Amino acid sequence: MAKVCEYYLAPQSPWTYLGHERFVALAKKHGVQVDIKPCDLGKVFNVSGGLPLAKRAPQRQAYRLVELKRWSEYLQMPMNIQPKFFPVPGDPAAKLIIATRLAHGTDAALNIAGAIMRAVWAEERNIGDMDTLAAIALECGHDGKALLKSSETASVQAEYDRYTEEAIAANVFGSPWYVVDGEGYWGQDRLDFVERAFQKL
């Protein structure tokens, strides 16, 4: 039986950025297949009680910045905790990741997801801009314009909608969210537990 981890993510999430490369490395180390599922975090929030950043209480917004700084320093990852292009809609980037998976497979999708997150959080690039997304795809070795065009098709939208529905059904309420053997783990700070779950597969 294949060892699989479902990976629900929103590509604009700073916490997903902080955990992405470590998660991919852990999955590879333990021979676990990743089922990457970009989803619409706004719709997930609507049914799970989450609030977009701008609507959160000031003390929560302030502490978020403290934690982002702590984690980026601890992990030694470059990060602009208040990037120029954020908040930014995640839909176009999420659909590009899905289009990449459909055309080139999971490894390519994981790679472009990492590049998209770095673009927001380390490179001050606008992932809501189509030309920027096409450039990122090109940098990852793909035909950026062709991949972007396919990301706008009905079939990709259907996958995006399906992943969002699956996230809601799985009681997801944040990003990143990992599901191992039917059990959910929220946040990059739960990767130690995710690895323990991998070891039991």
Rank of each mutant, 00 (worst) to 15 (best):
L138A: 09
E152R: 15
L147I: 06
A167W: 14
T164N: 06
L138S: 08
G144P: 11
L147D: 04
H142D: 04
A167P: 15
D143N: 08
I168C: 07
S150N: 15
D143M: 01
S151D: 14
G144V: 09
E159W: 00
A158I: 01
V156Q: 00
K149G: 01
D143C: 02
S150I: 14
I168E: 07
A167K: 12
A170C: 02
S155C: 08
E159D: 07
T153Y: 14
V156I: 10
E165D: 10
A146C: 09
E139N: 02
Y160L: 00
A154F: 13
Q157F: 01
A169F: 08
A169V: 06
E165G: 07
E166Q: 13
S155R: 09
A169E: 09
K145W: 03
T153M: 12
T164H: 08
G141M: 03
V156A: 02
D161V: 09
A170F: 00
E139D: 11
E152S: 14
S151L: 15
A170P: 05
Y163R: 03
A154Q: 10
A167E: 13
E139Q: 11
A169H: 08
E152K: 14
A154P: 04
G144I: 05
L147P: 06
A158M: 05
E165Y: 07
A169Q: 11
C140F: 07
V156S: 00
A146Y: 13
S151H: 15
Q157R: 05
A154Y: 11
Q157M: 04
G144S: 06
K145V: 05
G141V: 03
E152M: 15
V156C: 05
G144Q: 06
A146D: 07
A146Q: 15
A170H: 02
L148T: 13
A169Y: 05
G144K: 06
L147A: 10
H142A: 06
A167C: 13
C140V: 05
A170V: 01
K149N: 14
Y160D: 00
D143T: 02
A158L: 04
A167N: 13
T153L: 12
Q157A: 07
G141Y: 09
G141R: 03
A169D: 07
E165V: 08
D161G: 03
A146L: 13
D161A: 10
K149I: 04
A146W: 09
D143Y: 06
A170M: 08
Y160S: 00
R162K: 08
E159L: 05
L138I: 05
R162E: 10
T164Q: 12
